[in-house]
Amino acid sequence: MARDASLETIRSAYRKLAKRHHPDLNPGDAQAEERFKHLASAHQLLSDPVKRARFDSGEIDATGQEKPRPTSYRDYADGHAGRRYAPAGAAEDAWDGQDIGDMFSSMFGAGRTSRAGSRRGPRRGQDQHFTLTAQFLDAINGTTTRLTLPDGRTLDVRIPPATSDGDTLRLRGQGEPGDDDGARGDALIEIHVAPHAFFRRDGADIRLDLPVSLSEAVLGGQIDVPTPGGKVRMRIPAGSDSLTQLRLRGRGVPEHGKNASKVAAGDLYATLRVTLGTPDPALVAFLRDWKPDLAPNPRHAMESAA
């Protein structure tokens, strides 16, 4: 710690170390207790401006002011008196310290037969984990696909609409067989969604960059827009520039879920990209002779900012 460390710095460093070394949090660890004593005396020393000044000037040593720590909670909690603070429902309540038989029976398994890991009685099979890559539109619209397992079984996996990347499907009873007539475990199938060439998912919405020709952008008109549910006709307003965003309501991720968890259909947002392609000679000739009254400067904002 730096010589000029503030009281607050000292206090926060003390707390950090004290949480690790407090003897009542480390019962049975004599070293932790020893470290805590040093820590407590160092904290006491450094928190007291008078003592700290004497320590800094070398008048007293770091342990010089140590007081023996009063008896700790652990000294009592480990003994018979500690039973008063036994957790509710602990085996200890019903147990007078002489009844070792109960304790052995709980240690040797009689008290644990119903738990996983016990070797007695029917045991449920393990869950098996698989991953499955779904096409983007299959994950959006839902589909059924066949999965062949390593052991040769085939599973028909129903991918529900609006499945997201990383979602896990649980197929009950399709995991490993159980022991002694125990139930089969489940098959857990993690879905990876492959990216799409032009759709992007954004929660319940779908985003799309939509190329339009110069004349469609300038004059407007009806065009066909691809959506996850098929083509939809959309009107482009005249004079739509690149980056104009148009919304097709309800054409995003379809409605899915049931009852209370029902999620309404999202929207599709198409961002226009005016695309020139190879310019037509007539257009080139027109532009060459074109002298607009108000010559627009598309870089106006950049120039005024610079």
Binding site: P27, G28, R74, A77, D78, R83, A86, P87
Partner: peptide
Amino acid sequence: DELYAMRR
């Protein structure tokens, strides 16, 4: 309390 019950 659980830890100390276990230790006892």
